[in-house]
Amino acid sequence: MPIDAAKALAAEPRSAEITWDHKDIQLYHLGLGAGLPATDPDELRYTLESKLHVLPSFATVAGMGMMGGLSAPGIEVNLAAVLHGGQTIELHRPIPVKGKAVATSKVAAVYDKGKAAILVLRSEVADAEGPLWTSDAQIFVRGEGGFGGDRGPSTRLPAPEGDPDLEVERPVREDQALLYRLSGDWNPLHADPEFAKLAGFDRPILHGLCTYGMTLKAVVDTQLGGDVSRVRGYSTRFAGVVFPGETLRIRMWRTEGRVRATVTAVERDDAPVLADTVVEHA
């Protein structure tokens, strides 16, 4: 069968060296819509090398393309059946503006959801000073379940109670997917109208991880005083798509040490985009 869970889980982790510098950070931040207004001191910390801070969601693109997550032993799937179901990052310390590190990846879990399988692809990144971050991507593979494996834990969270503490809107530029893909995700689904139609969309869609980064930036800017070093962890479930040119509505609920968030697309009657979203912070 295309997924051999035992083989995938038993495979030796794969390691590769990754590097980044201020240009990679600045490009990533610009891909999230940072820099407007261009001279705003709060935006310059994302765009000006002399003041640069690293948004922790940069972990999802650092070294992009150097490690093939779906090429592990025991996994042979049709990429057209693959969806990014969720993403979690645990920060061990702030990400430096310039870095050289070793990323070690493995299939951490394979879950059987009946009509689909879920792969948890884990990447652990460390530099000479020790661990930097651990990233888990939950990959949903349609048509690959039913092999008798563990169904895995439920990641759904109860809906936040009461009205949000803050609601903000963030516009998605028409060219934002074209800029964001320069950070390493070259899937033509986000740029080529003909390819998007083959995938069932009437036009290219925004990268889910771009929405993920935009949401974290909104939380850091409005709830954490712009201090990226306060972020300890960040998780979400991808609940729907975003089209370039739309507007994100981000609702936030504050509790001790965490911010819950939901993200919807304003122009499509608040269609869900991100759900079960939590930012853990100091």
Rank of each mutant, 00 (worst) to 15 (best):
D202Q: 04
R156E: 15
D42H: 14
R232I: 09
L182A: 07
E246I: 06
R258T: 13
L9V: 06
R203E: 14
P164I: 06
L32V: 09
S123E: 13
Y234I: 05
I89Q: 02
A199K: 13
L166I: 03
G152S: 02
N187G: 11
G240K: 03
G69C: 00
L79Q: 07
A109K: 07
G99D: 11
A34F: 04
L121C: 04
D127R: 04
H53K: 15
G85L: 08
A5E: 06
H29C: 07
G69E: 03
G114F: 06
P193A: 05
R93M: 07
P204G: 11
I75P: 04
G184D: 13
T255V: 09
F140N: 00
V266M: 08
S50Y: 11
L224C: 08
A261I: 02
V97R: 11
L274A: 03
D227M: 03
T255K: 13
Q87W: 04
K51G: 00
A109H: 06
S71C: 06
V279L: 10
G184C: 12
K115Y: 02
V120K: 04
G257D: 10
T134G: 02
L91E: 00
T104Q: 10
I139Q: 00
I205H: 00
L248I: 03
A81L: 12
L179V: 15
A159N: 04
I89W: 01
G149R: 10
D112E: 10
R203Q: 15
L209C: 01
